[in-house]
Nucleic acid binder design. Structure first.
Lengths: 276, 276
DNA sequence: CCTTGTTTTTCATTCAGTGAAAAGGGAACA
DNA sequence: TGTTCCCTTTTCACTGAATGAAAAACAAGG
């Protein structure tokens, strides 16, 4: 039996178009028609036609060299996403303030299944480890951010993380479930987590959870890539920022979307029709 | 003759799916099936099915209340866009540094036809005029950012702007073509633009173009919303930031995408296949 | 010049997509 | 509690939008 080289392409046109978009990645942000045809298993003519439609809508664009890249439209749509409109926009002033006070790199992430998803990273260093790229997912057990979230998560999440052995990234990574649980206990007591070279050698961090009621919505971290200074001296402003972000998120809980310029009256909800 | 209430829906499935996605906007970031059906002119069953496919790919998600919103996937894709991966990522360290030095709000925009498109805005003020929302487009003649870009643009762009009367937004907006040209001349001499209450009452700015060779790629601005202090005292760091960003952009010109962690060798191009 | 790899166009075939209609919620109100 | 209204979800017979093979048109090397 000869296995096909790639999975058989989906039959639905929409799924095919999305499959094409899905081929673009950090590693391959610019692709040609024939590359796309090969990697999706779709006929070149099909890829050609679908790309034409996507291009008409600015979902893809052509680079100077004729390769296709994701287009402006997708960037604009990303801004309408709750991840941006709700989380990042609420958090940014606090993150900037924190960056300003500490001078350190500031990171902001949310829990996403058994991983942390980076939403924002503010650094004034021009070169910075690529691990913490915005949009990247990192394990919960090996960073300050992850531990801060995990410590305040529902037990199920911890169970899920501990269901598999804790993967060591550096000699400092916590791999023993018992001492890991103990660590989380300490974090709950102090209200913030710290880590030193547990994920990337040479970098250390301090992180605090962003809570809305009982649930962890996100976490904020300060990171230093040179093991310089004592990050714990910033614990107070860090907790303050996390607190402030939590408050803003709480204020717009239940709303389907952030009230755009907060008319200060009741709920601007009910019947937001598309055409007024 | 009874005109249809909405334009007849496109026949292509892909165009229909994109039409659905296109309904989401800043004003209406969360919609129901029936709202979408009405605003697109598509049958509810069609919208239902297409949303199902989009949801499977995380292009849309359901809010707690059952409305549809744009999904995580779109946010992630926005990050792969040249606007983010190339422009914002290059600029951010410089912008942050500038914010840090000045304490003022920092804006970053690119020319987009006869308008400026905001790419990034760094402010530590929690409430800020909604005009300068990231993703917003603003006219070129009424802001520091716009004038900085226009002053160094090709003459065609200026012609396009002057083809229509300069729309006044405040009493300070420049509306006379001749004095406007003169202003641009001054900006070229000084290397930066200033504006005071030309677009939004109560706010003033200073802005510098980001050049790559002869062409304006973007502009950086400092904005103050309270007419406090003298922004021109920051002209030196502002120009420095614009310069630095330009240098980085120049370094990756021609590349279809930013080299991810700059292997410092030649062009990492040629055959970036999707599957290694 | 020919070779090898692309992108684009064409067109007869067919199956994925369609939408009307009906069924299945669920919230508001009397 | 029953009634009304509007929403979502499912169904299904029909049909034209989508398909992909093949050929044409282009581009880059050698």
């Amino acid at each position: 039996m000869t296995e096909p080289l790639v999975a058989p392409p989906p039959k639905s046109v929409v799924a095919r178009a999305l499959l094409i978009l899905g081929q673009f990645s950090v590693a391959t942000p610019a692709l040609t028609i024939s590359e796309l045809s090969r990697s999706t298993g779709l006929a070149v003519a099909t890829v050609f036609r679908l790309l034409g439609e996507l291009e008409a809508g600015q979902y893809v664009e052509r680079s100077p060299r004729g390769r296709y890249r994701l287009g402006k439209r997708l960037w604009e749509m990303g801004l309408l996403t709750p991840l941006h409109a709700r989380l990042r926009e609420s958090a940014l002033p606090f993150l900037l303030n924190l960056q300003y006070k500490s001078g350190e790199t500031v990171q902001f992430a949310i829990p996403d299944g058994a991983a942390a998803l980076y939403i924002e990273k503010l650094t004034n260093e021009e070169s910075v480890p690529q691990q913490s790229r915005i949009g990247a997912r990192i394990p919960l057990h090996a960073t300050g951010l992850g531990k801060a979230m995990l410590a305040f998560s529902k037990p199920e999440v911890l169970d899920e993380v501990l269901a598999q052995p804790l993967k060591p990234y550096t000699p400092n990574t916590l791999v023993d479930p018992d001492s890991f649980r103990q660590e989380l206990h300490q974090i709950r007591d102090r209200g913030y987590a710290t880590s030193s070279e547990e994920y990337v050698p040479g970098s250390m961090s301090i992180a605090a959870p962003v809570m809305v009621g009982e649930s962890v919505q996100a976490a904020v971290a300060l990171v230093n890539y040179r093991l310089e200074g004592d990050l714990e001296r910033f614990s107070e402003p860090l907790l303050h920022a996390a607190e402030g972000i939590g408050r803003r998120l709480r204020d717009m809980e239940g709303l389907d979307f952030p009230s755009l310029h907060a008319p200060e009256n009741g709920i601007p909800e009910g019947n937001a029709t598309a055409q007024g």
